[in-house]
Design a protein around this nucleic acid. Structure first.
Length: 669
RNA sequence: GAGCCCGUAGCUCAGUCGGUAGAGCAGCGGCCUUUUAAGCCGUGUGUCGAGGGUUCGAUUCCCUCCGGGCUCACCA
């Protein structure tokens, strides 16, 4: 074990680029060495010990240099050399596009960007499957009768819903999706299937596929187990009589024309007209079924990278069938696959049948583009992505994004792929900027009397740059959108018209605090700073710790644990209303005394500590059934007054002062 | 019926080409006393779902099982 080739290798190579591969081969050789040596050597325990130390060193070296790979780097690593890459994705515009479709778009875009950044020539194509038949009435559109008569016709031949300025149905729906592309910084090159078919670009492939229809039938049977009759052909002609292609069945091909029947009962969702005809399959007179259309795209462009959702990626599913057809008919290998899981939006009560809430358009209106990209990119494609629209999830999402942002710019330990997640989330590359915490933005937005920008600048400690202002405005939009559409009632800071039921859970000390505060409010100056001070004063005079004190205010007014800065909030409200609300909370003096009392020893300890600062001490004693309490009101030299409540049974004011060696006279109340 | 993914700290999840694990939040301890527009510092011993196999060594690879989620079996 002459070892350690790896020792000087790691020392020397760690700092250089591309050492990963080298290190892994060293590692492999080393492991082999370890295996052989431990087998042959009697001092196994010692050897193993040495090996473990060395392996750990190797590991550390690897971690420090940062070889943790995000999924997109792994995919980019599969692409060897600098061969030009063609990335493809597509969508059928048969209705408003669901958020789920964004996952594939962002995934492909990320791979596209990574490849380009590594100097690989790449294109990102995005196809509009507008030659697909209309097989379902779009959700959300009341114009059922408008679409019903076109069921089975190619989407690009269906007129747009009434009122739309688009040329056809496909354009109407895809436009909304492409708008989102632009906002998310996705620079894909769009193409439309109608153009490919009509221009004859697919003619050669269509001919090849129809000539090998027997192969297609066999693949369907072997791969997906679905039987096709001897006369079945993978093509759908557009019926010359009724214009549908979802209902036609091709039964023969002679190399020039196909024979077809437009069958009334071929599919459930549309009714063919019964026409029989013979027509050329070229120049847009029909289309390939979707699985073969995939083959046609892969072969024609040719596509080298194309991911697909999990619904296609099951064994024997669409992807398998298409891959097998590509191999058998054209002898080509299918593109690099990126199987990805679903992207769902749950939680909030939304009606997907009405097409509300879970649309790509809505999500892009809500989340800032970089946050939406981040949400998708940070999750491995094989993990389902289920977004909840509650406060906790959304605030955490923004915070995670802000953390990634911060690490990318300021954390020297951040490794390359961590920074890359952030960089790929950006719509376009930007310098560092101040991003306000989203939870705070939500709060601020609900305080209409506040100057939001001024407050944020105060928090930042400097004026906002134009870019920062833009990001802030976008977050304000997100906060308002969330409050309007998704926030649950209890997540909103709505001033409650009556005392909430949960006020019953307030502790005696909290109730006492509200009483002390309420008693101070009639004389208080009604401004945010004065009120904030009054709250702290009341907390000391109760006495109560600050967190429960503030919680009691939020609980009684908003039924929340936390809220806006209390002084500003109260200043916004009516004085009499606030006093009345605080006094509405039931209060029991005996319990209050018990809850806020301290032992004489604790009081002594406190007094001794503050001894040098004491200005005045007042004492008042109160009798109760089980003894009584002495309330010491101590004012320190900073002007702050503290209340300490001690059991009267066990305490004599004079004795306590003597013990603490304090000679300030006590004023008795 | 066929197949895929997941099961790791109270919660949400990272990680692992095999060298027995780590972030955020929560929690706990301390500090502060103009932190409530979520202050500051410290703090992570968890049968890495269960059992078996390969190995010097498994959370990581293989097999079986349990639990959870999903997909395809018509079309896209």
């Amino acid at each position: 074990m002459e070892s350690l080739t790896f020792r000087h290798l790691t020392g020397r190579v760690c700092s250089t680029q591309g050492w990963d591969h080298l290190l892994s081969s060293v590692r492999g050789a080393y492991q082999q060495e370890a295996r052989d040596a431990t087998r042959n050597d009697p001092n196994r325990a010692f050897l193993i010990y040495i090996y473990n130390i060395n392996m750990a060193a190797l590991e550390n070296c690897r971690k420090e240099t940062g070889s943790v790979h995000m999924w997109f780097s792994d995919i980019a690593a599969k692409i060897r050399g600098a061969e030009p890459q063609i990335i493809n994705d597509s969508k059928t515009p048969s209705g408003r596009v669901h958020v789920g479709a964004l996952r594939g778009v962002i995934i492909h875009d990320a791979v596209f960007r990574v490849l380009k950044s590594r100097g690989v020539p790449a294109r990102f194509l995005f196809g509009v499957d507008d030659y697909d038949p209309l097989d379902e009435i779009p959700a959300g559109d009341a114009e059922r009768e408008h679409f019903e008569k076109y069921l089975g016709a190619p989407l690009c031949n269906v007129p747009p819903p009434p009122g739309s300025a688009a040329s056809d149905m496909a354009e109407h729906y895809i436009r909304e999706f492409f708008d989102v592309f632009a906002e998310l910084g996705v620079q894909a090159e769009p193409y439309r299937m109608r153009d490919l078919y009509r221009s004859g670009k697919f003619d050669e492939v269509i001919d090849a596929i129809l000539r090998r229809a027997d192969v297609v039938r066999r693949v369907y049977l072997e791969v997906s187990g679905s039987k096709r009759s001897e006369t079945w052909y993978p093509f759908q002609a557009i019926c010359e009589k009724c214009g549908r292609l979802g209902t036609t069945e091709v039964t023969a091909y002679d190399g020039k024309e196909v024979e077809y029947v437009c069958r009334p009962d071929l599919v459930q969702w549309a009714r063919g007209c019964g026409h029989r005809g013979k027509v050329s399959p070229f120049d847009g007179r029909g289309k390939l079924p979707w699985k073969l259309e995939w083959v046609a795209k892969w072969r024609t462009f040719p596509v080298t990278i194309e991911g697909a959702g999990k619904d296609h990626n099951t064994r024997g599913g669409a992807r398998d069938v298409s891959s097998a057809c590509l191999r058998e008919i054209f002898g080509l290998s299918p593109p690099v696959n990126i199987p990805y899981e679903f992207f769902l939006v749950g939680g909030a009560k939304m009606s997907s049948s009405r097409g509300i809430g879970a649309m790509a358009r809505e999500m892009a209106d809500f989340l800032p583009p970089e946050v939406l990209r981040f949400l998708i990119l940070r999750t491995q494609p094989n993990r389902p992505l289920n977004v909840t629209l509650d406060e906790e999830f959304i605030v955490k999402l923004f915070n995670d994004f802000d953390r990634a942002h911060h690490r990318a710019f300021h954390d020297p330990k951040a490794i390359e792929d961590e920074k890359l997640v952030y960089r790929l989330s950006e719509v376009k590359s930007e310098n560092d900027y101040y991003a306000e915490n989203f939870h705070i933005v939500i709060m601020l937005v609900q305080m209409p009397h506040m100057d939001l920008v001024a407050e944020v600048e105060k928090r930042k400690g400097a004026p906002l740059s134009p870019a920062e202002r833009r990001h802030l405005d976008r977050r304000v939009q997100a906060a308002r959108y969330w409050l309007d559409r998704y926030a649950a009632e209890e997540e909103k800071m709505r001033l409650l018209s009556t005392l909430p039921a949960r006020a019953a859970s307030l502790t005696p000390a909290q109730r006492g605090f509200l009483r002390v505060l309420a008693d101070a409010l009639p004389k208080a100056e009604w401004s945010d700073t004065a009120l904030q001070k009054a709250i702290f004063d009341a907390a000391r005079l109760t006495p109560i710790d600050q967190p429960p004190a503030f919680q009691s205010i939020y609980r009684t007014l908003l039924d929340r644990e936390s809220g806006p800065k209390a002084g500003s909030f109260l200043a916004f409200l009516d004085r009499e209303f606030v006093i009345a609300r605080f006094k509405e909370v039931p209060f029991d003096q005996i319990e209050f005394w018990r809850d806020t009392g301290v032992s004489p020893e604790a009081f002594e300890g406190w007094l001794s500590k503050e001894k040098s600062k004491i200005q005045t001490i007042r004492a008042a004693s109160h009798q109760t059934q089980d003894g009584g309490v002495i309330e010491f009101t101590v004012t320190l030299d900073d002007g702050k007054t503290y209340m300490k409540r001690v059991s009267a049974e066990k305490a004599d004011p004079r004795v306590i002062l003597q013990q603490c060696n304090i000679d300030i006279p006590i004023e008795y109340a």
